[in-house]
C-alpha cells in the first residue's frame, strides 16, 4: 500500500502561478478529499503529480515517481477527464487498449466493466454515453490494474444520486482495503460523507491538510445557541468570559469560544434563566467557505436589486 508524497509542486501559465509550492501527503487506507474553489489548481496539481504537466516539485508513490513505475496502471489508477475516450471505439476495446499497455488480461477488462455497471454496454460505442456513463468508463480504466492508489478528478460529475452513493461506498471500500484514494470534488456534502482526510487549496496554495473532523471543528462557525429571556444581562458576562457573542434574534444568542458547560455554569452562577442551550456544529461547507474566503479565482457579483434592473435600458 502506498503513501503519496507531494513536495513543492508548482506550475505557472504565462507567468501566472497556478500552483505554488504545494506539499501534502495522502495516507493509505483513507479517502483524501482534494478541495478548492474553481480555478484553484486542483486539476493542475493532479496532472503535475502524474508528470502530465511540466512544472516544479515532485510526487512519489511509495518513494517512486510515476515516470519510474513499471506498468503504471498496476500502481496508480487515474481519472482526469470527463470523457477520455474516442467516441467510436467500443468501451471494451478502449479498456483493452489501455490493458495492452500494462500487460493486463482481457478477463480483467470484463471484470471492471461489470464492477462499474457497464457490462451491458461493453460493446457499444461511447459516443452515446451520458456524462455519468463516461465517468464510469473512466473509473473502470482507473481500476484496470487493481492499483494501490487512485487519483480521481471530480469522479462524481454527471452521476445521478444513486451513482454518487455507489461511488462513495465503492471508494470507501477501496480505502478500507488499504488503498490510497485521492479524490477532488466540488460536492462538499458528498465529500463530508466520503472523505477521512482533506487537502484544501486556494489560488494554488495549501490552506489546510489533515483529518476532516479537525478541519470542521476548527471552524469559527462552531458555536452554542443560547435562548434566554435575559440576553441583555448574559451577553456581557459571556464576552467577559472570553466568548464571541452574536445576537441571532431578540432573546437568542450564538456564542463561539465557550463550550456548553461553561455557558450553563455561568448563567447558573448569575441566576439567569436559560430556555435553550444547544451546540451548533459547522458543516464542511461552512468551514470550507470560511477558510477559502478570498481565494476564489472567479468572484461573481451579487444580483443587482430589482429596482436597478427595472430602471435599466430596455
Amino acid at each position: 500500500m502506498a503513501t503519496i508524497s507531494a513536495r513543492g509542486l508548482a506550475k505557472s501559465y504565462s507567468g501566472k502561478p497556478a500552483v505554488r509550492d504545494l506539499s501534502f501527503d495522502v495516507q493509505p487506507g483513507s479517502v483524501t478529499g482534494f478541495l478548492g474553489p474553481n480555478g484553484s489548481g486542483k486539476s493542475t496539481t493532479m496532472r503535475l503529480m502524474l508528470g502530465l504537466d511540466r512544472g516544479a516539485g515532485s510526487t512519489v508513490f511509495d518513494g517512486r515517481p510515476f515516470a519510474e513505475l513499471k506498468d503504471p496502471m498496476r500502481h496508480v489508477g487515474a481519472l482526469l477527464e470527463a470523457k477520455p475516450f474516442h467516441p467510436t471505439r467500443k468501451a471494451r476495446n478502449h479498456l483493452r487498449m489501455l490493458a495492452a499497455a500494462n500487460g493486463i488480461s482481457a478477463r480483467r477488462v470484463d471484470e471492471v466493466l461489470a464492477t462499474v455497471g457497464l457490462h451491458d454496454v461493453a460493446r457499444s460505442k461511447p459516443k452515446g454515453f451520458s456524462l455519468g456513463m463516461g465517468q464510469r468508463l473512466g473509473l473502470a480504466a482507473a481500476l484496470l490494474g487493481d492499483p494501490h492508489t487512485l487519483i480521481l478528478d471530480e469522479p462524481a460529475n454527471g452521476l445521478d444520486p444513486q451513482g454518487i452513493q455507489w461511488m462513495r461506498v465503492f471508494l470507501q471500500g477501496l480505502a478500507a482495503e488499504g488503498r490510497s484514494v485521492f479524490v477532488s470534488s466540488h460536492l462538499l456534502s458528498e465529500m463530508a460523507l466520503m472523505a477521512d482526510h482533506l487537502v484544501v487549496i486556494g489560488k494554488g496554495s495549501l490552506i489546510a491538510t489533515g483529518p476532516i473532523d479537525e478541519f470542521v471543528s476548527s471552524s469559527r462557525q462552531n458555536a452554542v445557541v443560547v435562548r434566554t429571556p435575559e440576553a441583555s444581562e448574559l451577553a456581557p458576562l459571556l464576552q467577559a468570559a472570553g466568548g464571541t457573542v452574536t445576537v441571532l434574534a431578540p432573546g437568542s444568542l450564538s456564542v463561539a469560544g465557550l463550550d456548553i458547560e461553561a455557558i450553563g455554569d455561568l448563567a447558573h452562577s448569575h441566576r439567569l434563566r436559560l430556555h435553550e442551550l444547544s451546540p451548533k456544529v459547522a458543516t464542511l461547507e461552512e468551514a470550507f467557505l470560511e477558510r477559502t474566503a478570498g481565494s476564489e479565482e472567479f468572484q461573481a457579483l451579487a444580483p443587482a436589486p430589482s429596482a436597478t434592473v427595472e430602471g435599466g435600458p430596455r
Binding site: G51, L69, P72, A78, L80
Partner: peptide, 8 residues
C-alpha cells in the same frame, strides 16, 4: 492523458 497514464 489517458495514454500517458497507461504508458508513462
Amino acid at each position: 492523458r489517458a495514454s500517458l497514464t497507461a504508458l508513462n
